[in-house]
């Protein structure tokens, strides 16, 4: 029995009829074609699927799309505004905060939330804020530097 949902993703309204068991990440990737959000573990440990749902970082691999009915979602594709990279994206580029790039969209989304909540985070606070996101390549140090860069940049 399909269910109707209305979701705003990256500023665009979508109205779809979907199966209640469809995961949010599959809705974003398979129905909307937004493949920047990745799946790394299906158990909400790795954070590769992190998106912003009404401003909160959530793991879209363990949430049903119907639970996001009426929500505003931002995915990695929606982060850059008017062709300008988000400061966190810029920081990841400047500080080599990525290697294979697979965890990167989720990492970047999680990092935006860290800075939203705490505009001047310490290194320990950044590391704590990234606990829900696993990276197997970078060893995290360049990611921490990337977030520091972004916090400074966002503060002007």
């Amino acid at each position: 029995m399909k269910q109707a949902i209305s979701i705003n993703v990256n500023g665009v309204d979508h109205h779809d009829e979907i199966e209640p068991r469809l995961l949010l990440v599959h809705y974003l990737r398979d129905l909307l074609g937004l493949t920047g959000t990745h799946i790394g573990c299906e158990t909400s440990i790795c954070g590769a699927c992190t998106v912003l749902l009404d401003g909160q970082a959530v793991k879209s691999c363990t949430m049903f799309a119907v639970q996001a009915d009426g929500a505003n979602i931002t995915t990695i594709e929606g982060l850059a505004a008017n062709g300008q990279l988000h400061p966190v994206q810029e920081g990841f580029w400047e500080h080599h905060g990525l290697q294979c790039g697979y965890c990167t969209p989720g990492m970047i989304i999680a990092a935006t939330q860290i800075i939203d909540r705490n505009p001047n985070p310490s290194r320990d606070e950044i590391r704590h804020g990234l606990e829900g996101n696993l990276c197997r390549c970078t060893g995290y140090q360049h990611i921490v530097e990337a977030v520091e860069y972004a916090a400074k940049k966002a503060a002007g």
Binding site: L34, T35, H38, I76, A80, P105
Partner: peptide
């Protein structure tokens, strides 16, 4: 990096 940080890269899936 630009394609990767924008979520525009293509992995198999």
């Amino acid at each position: 990096d630009p394609r990767l940080i924008k979520g525009l890269a293509h992995y198999v899936d």
